[in-house]
Design a binder for these strands. Structure first.
Length: 841
RNA sequence: GGGUCAGUGGCGGAAUGGUAUACGCGCGACACUUAAAAUGUUGUGCCCGAAAGGCGUGUGGGUUCGAGUCCCACCUGACCCACCA
């Protein structure tokens, strides 16, 4: 081959050719493989070199799978609703719809240059009414099943973004988008009852055999935060000591304070209880609190604080006693005081806790306010610690042996808990309770750029669903889509859109004006790609058809997604939301499986040379367009896969792309070494062995996302082929095939140049032959006492005697065993001989 | 405080309990060249030395004929979660 390697020319040529021939759309095959990227939000900044890392990985996998005979679904789309898009639009004074369109164009152009196998016929865009018609439909099904409800509870409110936020949208009590301190604000809102699925979301992580990293599964487990404990009733004393018989005859509900605990074994040591400042019971008790103004002041301060201020690291505990109020410890029947403290959270458990000497927070607070404490747990086997604990010098939070706990003395914490529950349950004073940290999902945003919630408020009929035939409820065109501070979305001001006839009674009614959060559209998009398929059964772009059952067959074929690739930042949001929606769709029999994503791989970040994230702010962004222009898409792809382990975060180094390019230059020249005589075999037997070892390694490594070592193996192969004068055609062809998933353009070009008529991607992935990787000779390492002293070339399969006698002829080996006795010989065939020697006795 | 993962040359990194540092970058020497770039050949962990050697995968122990790899303790770093009773 005389022509120089010119990636610019051949890459453009093949990208056009592939798009026209539809070489990737091999859908009719028996075996399917669905490989999915987390679809991007098309930002105005365009791509930096970090974005394509995951896309290249899925592309490599998709190409190999197609070569292996799978029908591969590898789609791409745009997650374009939500705050970032709207903020971009506001800042640049363009309508979000227009901004999104332009940004998508830029993204598509950038992606196109890298040479991906995406099926653009299935492209989706969450802001397309034909798309969000389904987002709205799924929401309606949830509403019909009682999983979407209206709430007026205070929620997180970002004063800068002017919208309510879910817990998942917070970072250390601050808005994840703009960093503002989040306030609590009572707001009418729609909420999805995700807690109803908490147990299944937890359970299925294990039972559905998800191939996810332990870290992501653990993050989800922690987020769901299941704890097993008990709710205990503390009777509220009427200034008088109650005897036990009275406890057993509770009069009315108000007479009890309910607390949640996971440490019922410490209840005999409970000397006070603490309420959250927002606890509803406080109102009812007001008349009996003697220091009411002091209490009210404390509560006012506490409620006014942001979550961050209230939870600030190791903040000193503060609280106030409700003077005049007492409750009865149901275990000891003692009268104990009631406090309010802001570290108790109203949302969790019952919003009240019992306090004892075995919780650091309770312990610290008691010390500060001189509240009495009682020890009830003795650490096992640590007398020194026990002395300190007993004298209340140290707080022991661990499990141990019960003391000062009447009939339960001597039991371990674990044994005591169920026994105490039973004992109190018989008196109707306690019951088992499972709690979750995860909350229901606040699902409304007071912003313009989101899916309208398809509900109508009618004075007569209440909340009414928009009928299916009227979906989608389209986002109206407006002049001003700026958010307001009123707790209403900008949609509320568009009377012509808001005022409608009630679908039920035809009376006057108003549309719901809240929109859905950013995460709505991405909660089901992996299904949308399937629904965009040609056959079976329904149509194309802008042609999603009701009912959903039309797609059941297609879902059954493609779902679950076989491999899903994206960043870890979605661990507790998108990945939890999508699992939740999928389980709901399973419940209404729209899909047949319980989980959407079988295998999940999280790519590591590519950071800038300075170690920071790539960002305009730091002026350290590297644009893939520049890399492709300078080195070619194939070199860029190779480098990104070769940088290091896929899941690890690594700093960008442009010098590395040079190496990748050099490698491809070598490949380009390889064709000149093809043997002109007709023999099919390589003259060098070692080449065949190496080739078959490489086939095995590259295949296994791609499957396991170990792209860096796959490329290293390819480099070793090419380095060896380069030295051959007479390469066989089959070796050459096979080598191109192995490289083709990583460097599709150059291999396609060389494939054609070698006289092949059909695309390399319609060929077959090579198979390795176990018989062909057996070497005739093996290098045996000879050790004396575990230290390498010599290496021997021996015929494969040599036995111990042969190797040993050969080893003993070696001068160095002789030197190290001279005057010593061979005590033991370890021989691992074809690998190692270890002579264990010792001094003669 | 809890969880997950990691620590190997000048750098990115490789290594089913079996020759530590593959592959790539960088650097040195040589060849080609008037010269440079490109390319090719070759070298490149540390110490001592003429050689033979010795030491080496964060630290300290252990298991083993043999440990980067397994076990225990510790140190350091990254990421995630965190007043959840």
């Amino acid at each position: 081959m005389k022509k120089a390697y010119n990636p610019k020319k051949i890459e453009a040529k093949w990208q056009k050719e592939w798009a026209e021939s539809g070489v990737y759309l091999q859908y009719g095959r028996k075996k399917k493989f669905y490989v999915l990227d987390m679809f991007p939000y098309p930002s105005g900044a365009g791509l930096h070199v970090g974005h394509p890392k995951g896309y290249i990985a899925t592309d490599v996998l998709a190409r190999m799978k197609q070569l292996q005979g799978y029908g591969v679904l590898h789609p791409m789309g745009w997650d374009a609703f939500g705050l970032p898009a709207e903020q971009f639009a506001l800042k640049n004074k363009v309508h979000p719809e227009k901004a999104v369109k332009e940004n998508i164009k830029t993204f598509k152009k950038q992606l196109g240059k890298i040479g991906f196998t995406y099926d653009w016929e299935r492209e989706i865009n969450t802001t397309d009414p034909e798309y969000y018609k389904w987002t709205q439909w799924i929401f309606l099904q949830m509403w019909k099943k009682g999983l979407a409800y209206e709430s007026h509870d205070p929620i997180n409110w970002c004063p800068k973004c002017l919208t309510g936020l879910a817990n998942e949208d917070l970072e250390n009590g601050r808005c994840e988008r703009c960093g503002s301190l989040v306030e609590k604000r009572p707001l009418r809102q729609w909420v999805l009852r995700m807690t109803k699925y908490a147990d299944r979301l937890l359970h299925d992580l294990d039972t559905e055999k998800l191939e996810w990293s332990e870290s992501i599964k653990e993050q989800q487990r922690n987020w769901i935060g299941r704890s097993e404990g008990a709710v205990v009733k503390f009777p509220i004393s009427n200034f008088q000591f109650l005897n036990k018989s009275k406890i057993q005859n509770p009069k009315s509900k108000i007479d009890f304070l309910e607390v949640y605990t996971t440490r019922l074994d410490t209840i005999f040591g409970c000397t006070y209880v603490i309420l959250a400042p927002e606890h509803p019971l406080l109102k009812n008790l007001e008349s009996r609190i003697s220091n009411l103004s002091e209490v009210k002041k404390y509560i006012r301060q506490a409620v006014g604080k942001s979550d961050l201020e209230r939870t600030e690291l190791n903040k000193e505990k503060t609280g106030v006693e409700l003077k005049g109020i007492y409750v009865i410890n149901p275990a000891t029947t003692e009268k104990i005081p009631v406090w309010v403290a802001d570290f108790v959270l109203v949302q969790y458990g019952t919003g009240a806790v019992f306090a004892d000497a075995h919780d650091k927070r309770d312990f610290d607070m008691a010390k500060k306010y001189s509240i009495p404490l009682k020890v009830s747990i003795k650490p096992a086997d640590n007398e020194e610690l026990w002395h300190k604990v007993e004298r209340l010098e140290e707080c022991f939070e661990g499990e141990g042996i019960l003391v000062h706990s009447t009939q339960f003395d001597g039991l371990t914490s674990a044994d005591a808990r169920p026994k105490i529950i039973d004992w109190l349950a018989k008196q109707n004073l306690a019951k088992k309770k499972v709690n979750y940290k995860m909350r229901d999902w606040p699902f409304s945003r007071q912003r313009y750029w989101g899916e309208p919630i398809p509900l109508i408020h009618c004075d007569k009929c209440g909340v009414v669903a928009v009928p299916e035939k009227d979906l989608p409820v389209k986002l109206p065109k407006v002049k001003s889509y700026e958010p307001t501070d009123t707790g209403e979305s900008p949609l509320a001001s568009i009377a012509s859109w808001v005022n409608v006839k009630c679908p039920k009674c035809k009376g006057s009614a108003q549309r719901e004006t809240n929109t859905m959060p950013q995460w709505a559209g991405s909660s089901w998009y992996y299904l949308a790609y399937v629904m965009r398929g040609i056959s079976p059964p329904a149509g194309r772009a802008g042609n999603f058809q009701f009912p959903i059952s039309k797609y059941k067959k297609a879902f059954d074929y493609w779902i679950p997604v076989d491999v899903y690739v994206g960043g870890t930042e979605h661990a507790t949001r998108h990945l939890l939301y999508a699992r939740f929606w999928h389980k709901f769709l399973y419940d209404i029999k729209a899909v047949s499986g319980k989980e959407p994503f079988k295998k999940l791989v999280n790519q590591g970040l590519i950071v800038a040379t300075d170690g920071r994230k790539m960002s305009k702010r730091w002026n350290n962004v590297i644009n893939p367009d520049d890399m492709v222009a300078q080195f070619g898409a194939d070199a860029f792809r190779i480098y990104e896969m070769f940088m290091g382990p896929f899941t690890q975060s690594i700093a960008w180094n442009t010098a590395g792309v040079v190496g990748a390019r050099r490698f491809l230059e070598k490949v380009w020249k390889l064709g000149s070494r093809i043997s002109t005589n007709k023999t099919t075999n390589d003259t060098n037997k070692n080449i065949e062995i190496l080739l078959h070892k490489t086939i095995r390694k590259v295949g296994e490594d791609i499957e396991n996302f170990k792209f860096n070592t796959a490329i290293s193996a390819l480099m070793i192969l090419v380095n060896a082929l380069e030295k051959e004068d007479h390469l066989s055609r089959i070796t050459y062809r096979t080598s191109l095939l192995l490289l083709s998933p990583f460097a599709p353009h150059i291999t396609e070009e060389l494939w054609a140049a070698a006289g092949e008529k059909k695309s390399i991607f319609l060929a077959q992935w090579p198979k390795w032959d176990a018989k062909k990787i057996i070497e005739e000779m093996k290098t045996i390492v000879v050790q004396v006492n575990g230290k390498v002293r010599a290496t021997l070339q021996m015929v494969t399969g040599s036995d111990e005697e042969a190797v040993k006698s050969q080893a003993l002829k070696d001068i160095k080996v002789q030197a190290h065993i001279a005057g010593k006795e061979i005590h033991k010989v370890i021989y691992i065939q074809d690998k190692i001989l270890n002579l264990v020697v010792r001094e003669r006795v």
